[in-house]
């Protein structure tokens, strides 16, 4: 694996995370519990689509094979996706969506913070822009997790169920592989394992304020960030997302 091949893979991980989660969040449009939340969710999704365009755009540039952000998003099959399993999990109820968002935002904000000092200026520049957006996402999702966790009996129970369901997908964020090692060696990105402490700081503070209990098991599913073992959910998501591009290849839209 050359450095550029590793960088390409690393950029896909960043871009696929925001692509898939942005897509999931956009599924809420028109169906949220209250108008203000509908509008807020759309803002989050829009930020993530914008970040996707930047990360996948850079990935295509690094790859140098004439692809662009759209061909990467719409013409790869599931096994070529490099997103965390967490972000492809279905929306479930509003609580599950917001819990997934919070866990991702916490990880994302820590990661972007480190990437701002990347040795690759292009990476640092995108991270600087995205980290402002993500700081707000985290504030909002954390507030909502606290509000619902420490709300009514029903909202508390739903948030605890969401946390129990999603927690096994947290571990994957911090597992390092050869791509990560190459990025660390080049000074482009941090070792994922080194992000855990800061992540735990955020989640422990917020989840305890939310009166929620972090599951004791440290078991973690894996296979998203290297593409080897996605969930069944991803294929269905891609079916709708990629349908037009697949059904009418080569068109301009």
């Amino acid at each position: 694996m050359t450095r550029d091949e590793a960088l390409f893979d690393f950029l896909l991980r960043l871009g696929d995370n925001t692509l898939i989660l942005g897509h999931r969040v956009s599924e809420w449009c028109g169906h949220a519990p209250v108008l203000e939340e509908d509008i807020a969710l759309a803002n989050t999704a829009l930020d993530m689509i914008g970040q996707t365009q930047m990360w996948l755009g850079l990935a295509a540039e690094v790859e140098g094979k004439g692809r662009d952000a759209d061909t990467l998003a719409f013409l790869r099959d599931a096994w070529d996706f490099r997103n965390l399993l967490l972000v492809e999990m279905p929306n479930g109820d509003f609580g599950q969506t917001l819990m997934r968002q919070f866990l991702f935002d916490a990880f994302h904000s820590v990661l972007l913070g480190r990437l701002m000092t990347s040795s690759d200026e292009r990476v640092a520049a995108i991270a600087a822009k995205a980290s402002k957006e993500v700081a707000y996402h985290l504030e909002r999702s954390a507030d909502t997790v606290v509000g619902l966790g420490d709300g009514t009996e029903e909202s508390h129970a739903r948030m605890q169920a969401a946390l129990d369901y999603l927690w096994p997908y947290v571990g994957e964020m911090f597992r390092a592989d050869a791509v990560d090692a190459e990025m660390v060696a080049a000074g482009i990105a941090p070792d994922p394992a080194g992000l855990r402490e800061e992540f735990d700081g955020i989640t422990t503070r917020v989840l305890s304020e939310a009166t929620l209990e972090i599951p004791a098991s440290s078991f973690g599913h894996k296979g998203g960030k290297d593409g080897s073992f996605h969930t069944e959910h991803l294929g269905h998501l891609l079916c709708s997302m990629q349908w037009l591009q697949r059904a009418y290849p080569g068109c301009e839209w």
Binding site: H23, I49, Q53, M241
Partner: peptide, 26 residues
């Protein structure tokens, strides 16, 4: 059609547009 928009830009435009409708309702 938001989840089936054919490009990233079209998806963003459509989502922003539908979001505006929610704002207008508000």
């Amino acid at each position: 059609w938001i989840t089936r928009a054919p490009t990233l830009e079209r998806k963003a435009i459509l989502l922003a547009k539908v979001q505006d409708e929610a704002g207008h309702g508000l």
